[in-house]
Design a protein around this nucleic acid. Structure first.
Lengths: 211, 211
DNA sequence: TGCAAGACTATTGTATACCAAATCCGTTCG
DNA sequence: CGAACGGATTTGGTATACAATAGTCTTGCA
């Protein structure tokens, strides 16, 4: 994707996530083009992507509205992510290399460093957590899985989840990453799958915790 | 999607599936617009869809090439479809209504009628089979699951699979549908999930059979 | 002759303007 | 009060032009 299209995508997405465009709001291409300072062409590209990721829905007459993520839908998101990402972990366990394991170790070391202080460095946690999971998906070497998971792992959801983790839960998350690494070293796909499954499911409950 | 865009999508897809554009071929928007008799705009829409469904890949400079589906990728496709569609069956089992069950029964009756003659009516089989699975996914009531599965259930793959079914296998497929219906009547999600899982996996082996 | 720099070409991304078709909404009339 | 009509909105599509960039080819130099 290119500049204007990316910019439109990011702008519109943040409009939705910031709540400036609450669920049900109608979005028109012209209006969005105006807001983003680009023409309708890249806006249309951006809307297609947002539609695929279910940020927006289209009426039967193709008009665009901000989607409403119900609690049940978020649940389903985590369920699907758990199924697919634990499958990715199993595949990755069969394809893991020492170099990649070293990268995972490095990423998790940075995570542990980030949660060490009294005030955890959430930005670093998020960045390294994203990297950790991205490496696993990459090693899984399944283009389709990558495509699907990309549309399923919404960073804002991850952020909100991490924001609800206390220090103990952040540490436990890092510990689970450590166990995943052990499973990869052992090349034990069942183990990797099980750990990842629990890892995602626990994130769901953290997300659901009343803030 | 609309007329010109759909037409472009169908045209390009058939180009690829018919082998007129073998894997690795570069496709350009202008050329495709010419072939399809539409302008670049709907072609671009179509290319985005085809990219999401992995029919095409983009180089680092965004140029478009026909993708190559390796045997392993088809395997992974069936695996993912098995996971997700059996999950859909489980959800559907918890949400099934008598009306929807009646629709499933009707669809499967047409399937059984289609495979009865000496020369099975494959077109009807495919249409009713598609409908049967579509009803289940619809009853599962998960927009995300629907979106993902839509990109995963490639009709050409289904067609090729059915083409390799002999009469006995077609009958067995219909029988499995019957068992799914039983599971839905019993509202037994585990049963539905298990049957669907085997149903998809067996399709994979039929697909893989040397023709 | 081999190679590299630069010119040229091809292709995509974007903007803009415009039209057609479908749809929505407000108004008016029965 | 409700329904039908008509204008306003909105999207889908076409056409064209231009910028940016990547790929290709040519040519000149060592």
């Amino acid at each position: 994707m290119s500049r204007a299209s990316d910019q439109a995508y990011a702008n519109i997405r943040s409009l939705i996530l910031a709540g400036d465009a609450p669920p049900g709001t109608q979005l028109t291409e012209a209006q969005l083009a105006d807001i983003c300072g680009v023409s309708r062409t890249p806006v249309r590209d951006a809307l297609r992507r947002l539609e695929a990721e279910l940020y927006i829905v289209r009426s039967d007459s193709q008009r665009v509205f901000v989607a409403d993520w119900s609690r049940e839908e978020v649940d389903e998101m985590f369920t699907l992510r758990g199924m697919l990402e634990s499958h990715a972990a199993a595949r990755a366990a069969r394809r893991m290399t020492p170099n990649r394991i070293a990268e995972l170790v490095a990423a998790n070391a940075r995570i542990e460093a980030a949660i060490e202080p009294d005030v955890p460095d959430v930005a670093t946690f998020l960045e390294c957590n994203r990297l950790f999971h991205a490496i696993i998906i990459e090693v899984a070497a399944s283009p389709r899985l990558s495509t699907i998971l990309a549309a399923l792992v919404e960073q804002p959801v991850v952020r909100r989840t991490a924001a609800r983790y206390g220090r103990a839960e952040l540490a436990r998350s890092a510990h689970e990453h450590g166990e995943l690494i052990q499973a990869f070293i052992a090349a034990d796909s069942d183990w990797a799958q099980a750990v990842m499954s629990g890892h995602i499911r626990r994130a769901f409950h953290a997300f659901n915790k009343v803030a």
